[in-house]
Amino acid sequence: MKEQFLDLSKNRRSIYALGRNVSQSPDEIANLIQENIKWAPTPFNNQTTRAIILFGENHEKLWDIVADRLKSEVPSEEAYQKTLQKINAFKAAFGTVMFFTDVDVVKANEDAFPLYADNFSDWSEQAQGNAQYAVWTSLAENGIGANLQHYNPIIDDLVKDAFNVPDNWKLRAQLDFGSIEAGAGDKDFMDDADRFRVLK
């Protein structure tokens, strides 16, 4: 059995110690991200996933928004300082991909295919997973670490205003990426017998 793809999958990990010592240019990285999203499968080829790719000041602006917004969510100043350390680690990365779903396309598919209308929202989430995994794995293949965050929906309105996001784009995740300054730890797995069944 060929296992090149499996090896790439094993190389994709949540890397939290990220820096800006990448050898690729922002244009090269942006193109890689865009191509992965374009080729990730979607139901009925409806292409519901959208992305905004942030570098430089725009990347930092996103994590400043997150930090400011979380100040009103945490219970104490001590807790906020711990939260701020985590956010600053994301900010120290080279860039961020914000993933969105175009809800107008989801609604159009619901109207066009009423037999499957109840499924299109779920399917758009599955399409998001496909796109996010493809981007993340492709970055890892190029020696770029990343981790996936979900500060939506509490930052949605602020992000919309800051980056001129269309009203029909719903924020789903934020993938910060950069040079790998420290690797991931060991990965534990549950028992295969509790997870898989092979029927012959």
Score class of each variant (00 low, 15 high):
residue 1 M to R: 05
residue 1 M to C: 12
residue 4 Q to T: 15
residue 5 F to C: 08
residue 7 D to K: 14
residue 11 N to G: 08
residue 12 R to A: 11
residue 18 L to F: 15
residue 20 R to A: 11
residue 32 L to N: 09
residue 38 K to A: 14
residue 39 W to I: 11
residue 40 A to P: 07
residue 40 A to T: 08
residue 42 T to C: 15
residue 42 T to A: 15
residue 49 T to R: 04
residue 50 R to F: 03
residue 50 R to Y: 04
residue 51 A to W: 00
residue 52 I to S: 05
residue 53 I to F: 04
residue 56 G to R: 11
residue 57 E to H: 07
residue 59 H to Y: 07
residue 59 H to L: 11
residue 64 D to A: 05
residue 67 A to S: 12
residue 67 A to N: 13
residue 70 L to M: 12
residue 73 E to M: 13
residue 74 V to M: 15
residue 76 S to V: 13
residue 79 A to E: 12
residue 82 K to Y: 07
residue 85 Q to G: 08
residue 88 N to T: 09
residue 91 K to Q: 12
residue 92 A to L: 12
residue 97 V to T: 05
residue 97 V to Y: 01
residue 99 F to I: 01
residue 102 D to V: 01
residue 105 V to A: 06
residue 107 K to C: 00
residue 109 N to P: 02
residue 110 E to S: 05
residue 113 F to Y: 04
residue 119 N to D: 05
residue 135 V to W: 00
residue 143 G to Y: 05
residue 145 G to V: 05
residue 145 G to N: 09
residue 148 L to C: 04
residue 158 L to T: 11
residue 160 K to T: 12
residue 163 F to K: 02
residue 164 N to E: 10
residue 164 N to I: 09
residue 165 V to C: 03
residue 167 D to Q: 06
residue 168 N to L: 00
residue 179 S to N: 07
residue 180 I to F: 10
residue 182 A to G: 13
residue 182 A to H: 14
residue 187 K to T: 03
residue 191 D to P: 12
residue 191 D to Q: 15
residue 192 D to R: 06
residue 198 V to Y: 14
residue 199 L to G: 06
residue 199 L to K: 10
